[in-house]
Design a protein around this nucleic acid. Structure first.
Lengths: 340, 340
DNA sequence: ACTGGCACTCGCTACAGTCGAGTGCCAGGG
DNA sequence: CCCTGGCACTCGACTGTAGCGAGTGCCAGT
């Protein structure tokens, strides 16, 4: 393909200018603002080629050029240089967690920090149960036929669930059950628990069998079923920056999509170790979000990954800056979890 | 004041038409759509009076009339008839909680239901700790110097908090502490606990004193400080209905306000028993929300109130319908909590 | 006290004209 | 062969004008 270095430079310049100004950029303005060392006419020729290849397009004849999704993709993959965080950002990240008292707090502060730093919509997934281990299971008797099951994961996440027992149960029996489930499930990866839970039923004293069976059902529901993924979002107000110029005025579908947990999970929950994903425009497979880009990554203590986080914004976003911020925040949250 | 019955009828007609069409309503259209029994000219005279009194206004000369905040207020207080729920709404409310497994679930389903039925932004406060009693306190040893404190309230709400102990503690000591705190605090209103917690410190075995002191601090923080109010919101996408005609295109400040928990709490958290509040436009004392109305009420089992819920929308909203829905949902959630 | 009539206001839309940023192409020069 | 300056062309954005129509206020008549 005829994409020599200068054409790539032109593409980079177009992306940078367009991101900054939000207006189609023309050949003359380009050579003025960047040291390309050639004349506007030459740039125009390059632009014609870039357009033919699908990296940029004209909103209408006789307007400047605008990057296409494909153009942004090329920019992100090959043209953007890492943009170091500003000292202020660095400081903000280091400070945002002082005084966080529990996991809820950490997650909420993180999502707010991300939204604030990137000036975009931020999304943070709670540490996924599927990737956690059981630290402790607590059974709290509420009445003779009701237990509160509290599961504490090694990530600090706590889930509770009410268990309706078919038959009354004594305090001693509860103690027995508690000891038993902790012995068998404590320290185990949640993903590995289903067979263990099954085994528990066979193993329990006959008198406790009905109770254990119900408990097992609830345990399986709580521990394994995806449904219990949690996710928080912040910074929706940032969608209105750029005065509706992004998203051609139809904020509606985006807000709708953002209210669906399932969709958010799809966006930031599917992470591979040690990667940072950038999905640009159409690459998001959700119809309502074809005009947005998502930068996401996994986080967790050390090298393991327990959940995802990321930001969502217009395709016209500052990719280098956003990527740097997302990566830095993820790393820092990982460190915090590791200290726990 | 010269507000005879017909003038009030005219005001009601204006409010109803404007809410339905979202367009300033003129005298001719009014007599066509309502059986007022008089001519447009007469209506015009009435309108002039209503305008003088501040109940309606003209966006510009030679346009129809639009209700003012004061007009809506009069409408809500004296002119609106109760609008019975449709069978479909009734059914939706009765069905929305089947299969709710815990308080989180109840709250989330409620907020979604409200948003869907009213087609507005819905807000639900978790049962306030300040209004709950302690059902059970659980201490789970995480390590020798760390405890997980789990508080279960009678409303089903569960709070957890990590406690860093100054000195290591044995399993037996934990058992003692657990028994002690439950004996003294179990069943008590959270609001009444502070002196009891203080007393605990003096009462505990000397060896446990440092541990108890730290625990007491965390307890007080968790149980009493307002900060632990929780709130959920849904239906932000509904703000974009009416294509930015409401809110004169500046969705921004509203979205920003909605991200502040403190603000949401102020909106729906200050409830008096057995009342339903309607705050119209300026009556909200939050600058960003001067163009919105809030319909809120308290909910709880029986006649007690444990939290607030409500909806927020443009001042131009269907007050009778919204009021009926909010009231019905609050009542139903109360019933569900009572069964608990 | 209500009504029909009338003159007036003023926002909205359509239309024509101008401006200018930006383009594509071409011929000439290093 | 690639770059450049020049040139004609396109087309959206903006401006000013005109006509329309919904809606009003006022007044005289019943």
């Amino acid at each position: 393909m005829g994409l020599d270095d200068r054409k790539l430079d032109v593409l980079r310049a177009i992306v940078e200018d367009y991101v900054a100004t939000q207006e189609p950029v023309g050949s003359k303005a380009l050579v003025e603002r960047h040291q390309l060392g050639v004349s506007p006419a030459t740039v125009r020729n390059d632009m014609a080629v870039l357009e033919e290849e699908g990296y940029i397009r004209q909103p209408h004849t006789s307007a400047g050029r605008v990057p296409t999704d494909r153009g942004y993709r090329l920019f992100v993959d090959r043209l953007s240089r890492v943009k170091p965080l500003t000292p202020a950002e660095r400081r903000a990240i280091e400070r945002f967690l002082v005084g966080a008292v529990d996991l809820d707090d950490v997650v909420h502060r993180t999502v707010r920090l991300l939204a604030q730093l990137t000036r975009q919509v931020a999304v943070v997934q709670y540490p996924s149960l599927a990737r956690s281990s059981v630290r402790h299971l607590e059974l709290v008797p509420i009445s003779t036929t009701r237990l509160m099951l509290v599961m504490i994961a090694d990530t600090g996440r706590v889930e509770q669930r009410l268990v309706e027992l078919p038959t009354p149960i004594s305090a001693d029996d509860v103690t027995d059950l508690r000891r038993l489930v902790n012995e068998r499930l404590g320290g185990k990866k949640l993903a590995d628990t289903p067979p263990l839970v099954q085994a528990l039923i066979d193993e329990v004293a006959p008198g406790l069998c009905p109770a254990m069976t119900t408990l097992a059902t609830v345990l399986l529901e709580t521990l394994v079923e995806r449904h219990e993924e949690r996710i928080v979002m912040a910074g929706a107000a940032n969608l209105t920056r750029g005065g509706l110029l992004d998203f051609q005025g139809s904020l509606r579908p985006i807000l709708e999509a953002l209210e669906e947990e399932v969709i958010l999970l799809k966006l930031i929950g599917e992470v591979e170790p040690n990667t940072l994903q950038v999905r640009i425009g159409d690459e998001n497979e959700i119809d309502n979000l074809r005009a947005t880009s998502v930068v996401s990554t996994g986080y967790g203590p050390g090298t393991t990954i327990v959940g995802g986080l990321g930001v969502l914004g217009p395709t016209r976003m500052d990719y280098p800056g956003t990527i740097a911020t997302v990566r830095a925040v993820a790393r820092y949250v990982g460190d915090v979890l590791a200290q726990n």
